Simulated assay, not measured.
Amino acid sequence: MARIDLWWLPRALVLGLLAFIIFGPLSNLVLWTIAEKWYFPHMLPLEYGLSFWQRVFSPRGNAMESLLTSIVIAALTVIASLALAIPAGYALSRLTLPFRGLILLAFLIPQAFPNLPVYVNIARFFYQIGLNGTIAGVVMVHVTHGLVYAVWIATAAFSAVDVDLEEAARSIGAGPFHAFRDVTLPLAAPGLMASAIFVFLESLDEFTGTYFVGAPDVTTLPLLLYTAGSGGNYQIASITALLLLVPSIGFMLIVERFLRADVLSKVGH
């Protein structure tokens, strides 16, 4: 008599539970984007339609303007973060620096404290110097968080590049800058690109800093999402959340392509 393998049952239950945890909220989100009428105790929407999509993308909906503002801020944050992270990462990977580990840990300080009291004090200071309610002020706040990803991944990317290749270029006449530009930087480019994507996504989803430093003059998609959600307009909130989710998934697929295993192995070393 054939022996029945029952191990598939717990595995199927675990996989089914994981799928429900991951895709359940996403399915609910998608349903809210097309629900015209939906209230308790009904399990599914009573009416379906796209009228809320029209409201979001209408000139008065402010979604496209907020999306453009979010993209501009995220792009400026990436430029500023990489401008600081590339020289810092190169120095941390190539030079024998005292307290190198503490320097890397210092970039984690913005993540070590509660955001709310920090941003309240930053907003007060920015108000005194005229940066509150400006894109420049919001970008500066985003950079403080983006540097965590930028510096750590840039350091790992440069550490993954063999020093002998740079020294070989210099031995045939290339100067330090040309060896860095023509040899080291292209080889570290995939890691730097992944770093830029992480910073971009962090800036795109940032709410607290933008709220205290930028609102009401600077409106991004996360602020629009918060306004719609707090007002009980779940359809518009869900559509806005979906707009934020799409680039996040796309960019994470790009990160998986460009962030190599040899770069990941150098993170923190």
Rank of each mutant, 00 (worst) to 15 (best):
A179G: 13
S203V: 15
L6S: 14
I86F: 03
A189K: 01
L31S: 04
L243D: 10
W7Y: 12
L97N: 00
I153H: 03
V72E: 07
E166L: 07
R170W: 08
R11L: 04
G24T: 01
Y48A: 13
R124V: 02
F99L: 01
D182N: 15
V213D: 12
A237W: 15
S81T: 07
A156N: 13
I34L: 06
V148K: 11
S51P: 02
G130D: 09
A88P: 10
W38R: 08
T220P: 11
V148P: 15
F200G: 15
W152P: 04
V78H: 13
S203G: 14
M1K: 14
F52E: 07
R94G: 01
F107L: 09
R60P: 01
V30R: 00
E206N: 07
I254K: 15
I73T: 08
L105P: 07
F113I: 12
S248H: 09
I239Y: 06
D262M: 08
V267L: 05
L6K: 15
I249R: 03
F200V: 07
P45S: 02
F251Q: 02
L185K: 00
F99E: 00
I236V: 08
A215W: 14
P110Q: 10
P110I: 12
L84P: 11
R60H: 03
R124K: 00
F57C: 07
S51F: 14
V141I: 09
A85K: 10
G133C: 00
L6I: 10
V218C: 13
V183H: 05
A157I: 06
V213C: 13
F52N: 06
T96I: 12
L245M: 13
P41N: 08
L46C: 06
S81Y: 15
A189P: 00
G133T: 00
G173K: 13
Y127T: 05
I129P: 03
Q128Y: 05
A88D: 07
L95I: 02
F198Y: 09
D5W: 04
V72M: 14
S81H: 12
A150I: 04
V143M: 06
A154F: 06
L187M: 10
I71E: 11
A123N: 04
V148N: 09
A75W: 11
F20I: 07
F23Q: 00
L147P: 07
V141M: 13
F57K: 08
E47R: 09
V14W: 01
A215Y: 10
A19C: 12
D217P: 08
A196R: 03
F23Y: 00
L244I: 06
L243N: 10
L244H: 07
L26A: 01
L9I: 03
D205V: 12
A83D: 00
Y234I: 12
F57W: 15
V72T: 13
V199D: 10
G175M: 02
P25A: 00
